[in-house]
Design a protein around this nucleic acid. Structure first.
Lengths: 118, 118
DNA sequence: CCGTATCCTCCAGGATACTG
DNA sequence: CAGTATCCTGGAGGATACGG
């Protein structure tokens, strides 16, 4: 009679088995934390982001930005409607709640590079 | 003449464009942080881990444990050589340097569930 | 009990060309 | 400048059965 009923956590329609996997579902993937890391310091235009991330493709950057925007972590502001367009990306207030995490993630990366790089 | 030369970071033979992506390369993926999250509190046996992670498959859990062990984040200790085996997984000292990150990742997940769950 | 061995699916991310 | 539109590929992760 007893169902497994392993209390799944929900956010934006997706289910996660624990709080850690929920966070990783939102900021996981190859590029999301990198984008957030750059936007943490300052708002940036599309091309500025691209230059900060030399190995990402246009399509992938575009998709990741859209996903982050849909999850409410970043906002997209258009300044000119006539080409050349000017678009700036920045963290939302919700996105800013991630700053401590991004900082510790970046900090640990630096620590590893300094002490174990090879 | 000037090469792009975008100083890549290296760890265990892989290259990353920035410190944040290096960290995510090591603890990213669907299950690694979940495993570390459970091992952070206590060492656990294979089956205990499985029960903590009801939706992971045996094969995937096995592969992720092996990857974490290869990166030096967890250690595997075998207690009996005759079946039934007893194997315990725990964080290494290096793995323990991740505890602050895991805690903030888990904490943010909890925060989101409390304030935005739907 | 603690995994491996096979086989398979799916989609994140890449390459490239093109547009408002 | 800031993206879409197509097409494609590799590998993460899943399902299931079996082995020490």
């Amino acid at each position: 009679m007893e169902e497994k009923e392993t209390k799944m956590l929900k956010f934006r329609g997706k289910e996660y088995p624990c709080c850690a996997s929920l966070t990783m579902g939102i900021i996981g993937g190859k590029w999301k934390t990198v984008i957030l890391y750059h936007l943490m310091k300052e708002k940036l235009r599309y091309n500025e982001l691209r230059k900060s991330m030399p190995t990402v493709t246009e399509r992938t950057l575009s998709l990741q930005l859209k996903a982050l925007e849909e999850d409410g972590l970043i906002k997209r502001k258009v300044y000119t409607s006539k080409p050349p367009l000017k678009v700036e990306y920045s963290l939302t207030d919700f996105g800013k709640t991630l700053i401590p995490i991004i900082k510790s993630i970046a900090g640990w990366g630096d620590y590893v590079v300094e002490n174990y790089s090879r």
